[in-house]
Protein backbone atom coordinates (compact mmCIF):
# COMPACT_ATOMS: atom_id res chain seq x y z
CA UNK A 1 0.00 0.00 0.00
CA UNK A 2 1.32 3.40 -0.94
CA UNK A 3 -0.76 5.62 1.31
CA UNK A 4 -2.50 4.78 4.55
CA UNK A 5 -4.40 7.50 6.36
CA UNK A 6 -5.46 6.09 9.70
CA UNK A 7 -7.92 7.89 12.01
CA UNK A 8 -6.36 11.26 11.40
CA UNK A 9 -7.59 14.20 13.46
CA UNK A 10 -6.94 17.87 12.87
CA UNK A 11 -8.30 20.98 14.55
CA UNK A 12 -7.70 24.60 13.72
CA UNK A 13 -6.47 27.04 16.36
CA UNK A 14 -9.44 27.77 18.58
CA UNK A 15 -10.30 24.12 18.81
CA UNK A 16 -12.65 23.79 15.82
CA UNK A 17 -12.19 20.21 14.55
CA UNK A 18 -11.79 19.85 10.79
CA UNK A 19 -10.95 16.16 10.44
CA UNK A 20 -12.31 13.54 12.84
CA UNK A 21 -10.83 10.08 12.63
CA UNK A 22 -10.46 10.16 8.87
CA UNK A 23 -9.14 6.95 7.33
CA UNK A 24 -8.27 6.28 3.72
CA UNK A 25 -5.93 4.08 1.71
CA UNK A 26 -4.44 4.31 -1.75
CA UNK A 27 -2.48 1.70 -3.70
CA UNK A 28 0.32 2.24 -6.22
CA UNK A 29 -1.08 3.45 -9.54
CA UNK A 30 -4.55 4.01 -8.13
CA UNK A 31 -6.49 7.27 -8.64
CA UNK A 32 -8.89 8.64 -6.06
CA UNK A 33 -11.17 11.68 -6.16
CA UNK A 34 -11.89 13.46 -2.90
CA UNK A 35 -15.01 15.60 -2.94
CA UNK A 36 -16.81 17.64 -0.35
CA UNK A 37 -18.34 21.01 0.39
CA UNK A 38 -16.30 24.15 0.93
CA UNK A 39 -14.70 24.02 4.36
CA UNK A 40 -15.20 20.27 4.70
CA UNK A 41 -11.45 19.71 5.14
CA UNK A 42 -10.51 18.36 1.69
CA UNK A 43 -7.55 20.67 1.24
CA UNK A 44 -6.53 20.14 4.86
CA UNK A 45 -6.38 16.38 4.31
CA UNK A 46 -4.38 16.91 1.14
CA UNK A 47 -1.94 19.21 2.95
CA UNK A 48 -1.48 16.66 5.73
CA UNK A 49 -0.83 13.92 3.19
CA UNK A 50 1.72 16.15 1.45
CA UNK A 51 3.54 16.62 4.77
CA UNK A 52 2.86 20.33 4.53
CA UNK A 53 1.18 20.43 7.93
CA UNK A 54 1.10 18.30 11.07
CA UNK A 55 -1.95 16.52 12.45
CA UNK A 56 -3.25 16.19 16.00
CA UNK A 57 -4.00 12.46 16.11
CA UNK A 58 -3.92 9.28 14.06
CA UNK A 59 -1.23 8.46 11.54
CA UNK A 60 -0.43 8.89 7.89
CA UNK A 61 1.97 6.38 6.35
CA UNK A 62 3.39 7.20 2.95
CA UNK A 63 5.38 4.53 1.14
CA UNK A 64 6.11 2.84 4.44
CA UNK A 65 7.13 5.98 6.32
CA UNK A 66 4.97 7.34 9.14
CA UNK A 67 4.68 11.11 8.97
CA UNK A 68 3.92 11.96 12.60
CA UNK A 69 7.43 11.35 13.98
CA UNK A 70 9.03 13.45 11.27
CA UNK A 71 10.46 16.85 12.16
CA UNK A 72 10.46 19.87 9.86
CA UNK A 73 13.47 18.62 7.87
CA UNK A 74 12.03 15.08 7.58
CA UNK A 75 8.73 16.41 6.28
CA UNK A 76 10.61 18.62 3.80
CA UNK A 77 12.56 15.58 2.58
CA UNK A 78 9.30 13.66 2.17
CA UNK A 79 7.80 16.48 0.07
CA UNK A 80 10.94 16.59 -2.03
CA UNK A 81 11.20 12.88 -2.74
CA UNK A 82 7.90 11.09 -2.40
CA UNK A 83 5.06 13.40 -3.39
CA UNK A 84 4.32 16.01 -5.98
CA UNK A 85 1.74 18.73 -5.77
CA UNK A 86 -0.50 20.56 -8.22
CA UNK A 87 -2.47 23.54 -6.91
CA UNK A 88 -5.46 25.42 -8.23
CA UNK A 89 -3.44 28.66 -8.20
CA UNK A 90 -0.59 26.94 -10.15
CA UNK A 91 2.00 28.38 -7.72
CA UNK A 92 4.82 28.47 -10.19
CA UNK A 93 7.98 30.31 -9.26
CA UNK A 94 7.60 33.68 -11.00
CA UNK A 95 11.32 34.45 -11.13
CA UNK A 96 12.21 31.25 -13.04
CA UNK A 97 11.53 30.49 -16.70
CA UNK A 98 9.08 27.80 -17.79
CA UNK A 99 12.00 25.44 -18.48
CA UNK A 100 13.52 26.08 -15.07
CA UNK A 101 10.14 25.65 -13.38
CA UNK A 102 9.60 22.35 -15.17
CA UNK A 103 12.81 20.79 -13.93
CA UNK A 104 12.93 22.54 -10.55
CA UNK A 105 11.34 19.85 -8.36
CA UNK A 106 13.19 17.00 -10.07
CA UNK A 107 16.50 18.76 -9.58
CA UNK A 108 15.72 19.49 -5.93
CA UNK A 109 14.98 15.79 -5.47
CA UNK A 110 18.16 14.86 -7.34
CA UNK A 111 16.11 12.95 -9.87
CA UNK A 112 16.42 15.02 -12.97
CA UNK A 113 16.01 13.09 -16.22
CA UNK A 114 16.63 15.49 -19.07
CA UNK A 115 15.02 13.26 -21.70
CA UNK A 116 11.95 12.69 -19.61
CA UNK A 117 11.61 16.43 -18.90
CA UNK A 118 11.93 17.16 -22.62
CA UNK A 119 9.27 14.56 -23.39
CA UNK A 120 7.04 16.05 -20.72
CA UNK A 121 7.45 19.50 -22.23
CA UNK A 122 6.50 18.12 -25.61
CA UNK A 123 3.53 16.16 -24.29
CA UNK A 124 2.29 19.24 -22.43
CA UNK A 125 2.78 21.51 -25.45
CA UNK A 126 5.35 23.64 -23.67
CA UNK A 127 8.40 23.09 -25.91
CA UNK A 128 8.11 26.56 -27.48
CA UNK A 129 7.52 28.29 -24.17
CA UNK A 130 10.54 27.09 -22.21
CA UNK A 131 12.35 30.44 -22.13
CA UNK A 132 9.27 32.43 -21.18
CA UNK A 133 8.26 33.48 -17.69
CA UNK A 134 5.05 32.22 -16.03
CA UNK A 135 3.41 35.65 -15.95
CA UNK A 136 3.30 35.69 -19.76
CA UNK A 137 1.37 32.39 -19.98
CA UNK A 138 -2.37 31.75 -19.97
CA UNK A 139 -3.98 29.95 -17.03
CA UNK A 140 -4.16 26.66 -18.97
CA UNK A 141 -0.51 26.91 -19.95
CA UNK A 142 0.53 27.69 -16.38
CA UNK A 143 -1.35 24.68 -15.07
CA UNK A 144 0.34 22.47 -17.69
CA UNK A 145 3.71 23.74 -16.43
CA UNK A 146 2.64 22.93 -12.87
CA UNK A 147 1.68 19.38 -13.92
CA UNK A 148 4.99 19.01 -15.77
CA UNK A 149 6.90 20.20 -12.69
CA UNK A 150 5.01 17.72 -10.54
CA UNK A 151 5.59 14.77 -12.90
CA UNK A 152 9.25 15.50 -13.71
CA UNK A 153 10.63 13.69 -10.62
CA UNK A 154 8.39 10.67 -11.41
CA UNK A 155 6.60 10.81 -8.03
CA UNK A 156 4.95 7.80 -6.46
CA UNK A 157 2.03 9.96 -5.38
CA UNK A 158 0.61 13.01 -7.11
CA UNK A 159 -1.60 15.26 -5.00
CA UNK A 160 -3.79 17.73 -6.86
CA UNK A 161 -5.96 20.38 -5.20
CA UNK A 162 -8.69 21.58 -7.59
CA UNK A 163 -6.21 21.62 -10.49
CA UNK A 164 -8.85 22.74 -12.98
CA UNK A 165 -10.70 25.14 -10.69
CA UNK A 166 -9.28 28.23 -12.38
CA UNK A 167 -9.70 27.02 -15.97
CA UNK A 168 -12.48 27.14 -18.53
CA UNK A 169 -14.19 23.93 -19.62
CA UNK A 170 -11.97 23.17 -22.64
CA UNK A 171 -8.72 23.91 -20.82
CA UNK A 172 -10.01 21.95 -17.84
CA UNK A 173 -10.67 18.85 -19.96
CA UNK A 174 -7.26 19.09 -21.64
CA UNK A 175 -5.42 19.46 -18.35
CA UNK A 176 -7.25 16.53 -16.76
CA UNK A 177 -6.63 14.32 -19.80
CA UNK A 178 -2.93 15.10 -19.67
CA UNK A 179 -2.69 14.52 -15.95
CA UNK A 180 -4.47 11.16 -16.09
CA UNK A 181 -2.45 9.94 -19.05
CA UNK A 182 0.85 10.91 -17.36
CA UNK A 183 -0.19 9.26 -14.12
CA UNK A 184 -1.07 6.12 -16.01
CA UNK A 185 2.18 6.21 -17.92
CA UNK A 186 4.38 6.62 -14.86
CA UNK A 187 2.42 4.36 -12.55
CA UNK A 188 1.93 7.11 -9.98
CA UNK A 189 -1.03 7.18 -7.65
CA UNK A 190 -3.28 10.24 -7.72
CA UNK A 191 -5.26 11.86 -4.94
CA UNK A 192 -7.31 14.66 -6.47
CA UNK A 193 -9.48 17.14 -4.60
CA UNK A 194 -12.39 18.43 -6.67
CA UNK A 195 -15.88 19.86 -6.49
CA UNK A 196 -16.80 18.35 -9.81
CA UNK A 197 -18.63 15.03 -9.90
CA UNK A 198 -17.83 14.70 -13.61
CA UNK A 199 -14.12 14.78 -12.87
CA UNK A 200 -14.55 12.46 -9.89
CA UNK A 201 -16.32 9.99 -12.15
CA UNK A 202 -13.25 9.64 -14.36
CA UNK A 203 -11.04 8.39 -11.48
CA UNK A 204 -10.77 4.83 -10.11
CA UNK A 205 -12.27 5.61 -6.72
CA UNK A 206 -14.30 8.37 -5.07
CA UNK A 207 -14.41 9.47 -1.44
CA UNK A 208 -16.64 12.19 0.00
CA UNK A 209 -15.68 14.28 3.01
CA UNK A 210 -18.42 15.75 5.13
CA UNK A 211 -18.43 17.00 8.71
CA UNK A 212 -14.87 15.87 9.15
CA UNK A 213 -15.65 12.25 8.22
CA UNK A 214 -15.26 10.18 5.07
CA UNK A 215 -18.63 9.04 3.90
Amino acid sequence: MLLNIDKVQKSYPGGRPVLRDVSLTLDHGQTLALTGESGSGKSTLLNLTAALDSFDGGEITLDGTALSPLDDAGRAAMRRRSVSLVFQQFNLIPSLTVGQNLSFHARLADREDVDWTARLAERLGLSDLLSRYPESLSGGQQQRVAIGRAMAPRPKLLLADEPTGNLDETASTNVLDLMLSLVAETGAALLLVTHSHDIAARLDRHAHLSGGHIT
Binding site: D72, A77, R79, R80, R81, L85, N91, I93, L108, A109
Partner: peptide, 10 residues
Protein backbone atom coordinates in the same frame (compact mmCIF):
# COMPACT_ATOMS: atom_id res chain seq x y z
CA UNK B 1 5.94 27.03 -3.50
CA UNK B 2 9.61 26.37 -2.81
CA UNK B 3 8.75 25.35 0.74
CA UNK B 4 6.05 23.05 -0.62
CA UNK B 5 8.57 21.46 -2.97
CA UNK B 6 10.73 20.33 -0.10
CA UNK B 7 12.73 23.08 1.60
CA UNK B 8 12.47 23.67 5.33
CA UNK B 9 11.62 27.04 6.82
CA UNK B 10 15.08 27.10 8.42
Amino acid sequence: PVWALGLTRA
